[in-house]
């Protein structure tokens, strides 16, 4: 064997070995990356589950407080009103007793009215009994009572039942959106349209404000300050929905909420 042969064979072996090493290294790197990705996926999944648990816990707590207020305190206040009424025939007249009793009764009514507002904001009872569309309509009625803004609700059809968990999240998203519009957009009118087909539920919230909702959205994406709009995104994330914000025709903002697979599973 000549020296040159040995050289060639040696070089070839060395080359093969180095290729093997490179391949091994790449393979190992790939495994490491895959492992990292798996861990991150798991982390994300865990985060989503944690968020879901927090949201669910929060809702349960709100529901409990709303029901306690509405059912217990409400019933007691109603009895108070009935008792006040029974005082009426016993009163002496002439020194303004009647007027004072009437004032007290009116005041009781005001407290009851406040109680209704608080408990309905905490938890919409209509959602469980009458479904998402009616609950949103009731929410608009409630908001219209304090006259800050005029909200018009339009149900454009679709009879599909919405899964109760998802319905509550969608309700909260709309509630949050309205809160944001009231806070930032200086709108005088808001229109909510509700449309469902077997595969897609779409709710549009259109305001006639200054379009600041779009800007505050950008801001909230950059910093962690604005909880409201973040909340909207995380809630929709949990139920597999999404939201788009578009500039309105003349002014204001159009928010488009879309949720697929929203229907209540058949029993």
């Amino acid at each position: 064997m000549r020296f040159s042969d040995i050289l060639i064979i040696g070089t070839a072996v060395m080359l093969l070995l180095s290729i093997l090493v490179v391949v091994l290294v790449i393979f190992q790197q790939k495994q490491v990356i895959q492992h990292k990705l798996a861990i991150r996926d798991k982390d994300l999944q865990l985060q989503k589950e944690r968020l879901l648990a927090i949201l669910q816990g929060q809702e349960q707590e709100r529901k409990r407080i709303a029901e306690d207020l509405h059912d217990e305190v409400g019933a007691q206040l109603s009895v108070l009103k009935l008792n006040l009424n029974q005082l009426q025939p016993l009163l002496k007249t002439g020194n303004g007793e009647m007027e004072q009793l009437k004032e007290t009764k009116d005041f009781t009514d005001t407290i009851i009215q406040h109680l209704r507002f608080i408990s309905q904001s905490l938890h919409p009872q209509a959602l469980e009994n009458l479904g998402l569309s009616k609950a949103l309509d009731s929410f608009c009625n409630l908001m219209n009572k304090n006259k800050q803004v005029k909200i018009l609700f339009k149900d454009e059809g679709g009879q599909q039942d919405v899964d109760i968990e998802k319905a509550l999240n969608i309700y909260r998203v709309v509630q949050e959106l309205i809160n944001n519009i009231l806070k930032h957009a200086q709108a005088t009118q808001i229109e909510i349209t509700y449309r469902s087909t077997p595969n897609l539920l779409q709710i549009n919230v259109i305001d006639n404000g200054n379009g600041l909702l779009l800007r505050s959205l950008d801001n909230s994406r950059q910093k962690t300050g604005s909880l409201g709009l973040k909340n909207i995104e995380s809630r929709l994330n949990v139920i597999g929905g999404n939201i788009r914000y578009l500039p309105g025709q003349n002014c204001g903002t159009i928010a488009e909420i879309r949720v697929e697979n929203f229907q209540r599973p058949e029993e």
Binding site: H70, D71, G74, A75, S78, I112, R116, Q120, Q125, A126, N129, L130, K134, A135, D137, S138, N141
Partner: peptide, 11 residues
């Protein structure tokens, strides 16, 4: 009832 809600009334 305590519920003052048009949708409940109609229903």
């Amino acid at each position: 009832t305590m519920y003052e809600d048009d949708n409940f009334i109609v229903h």
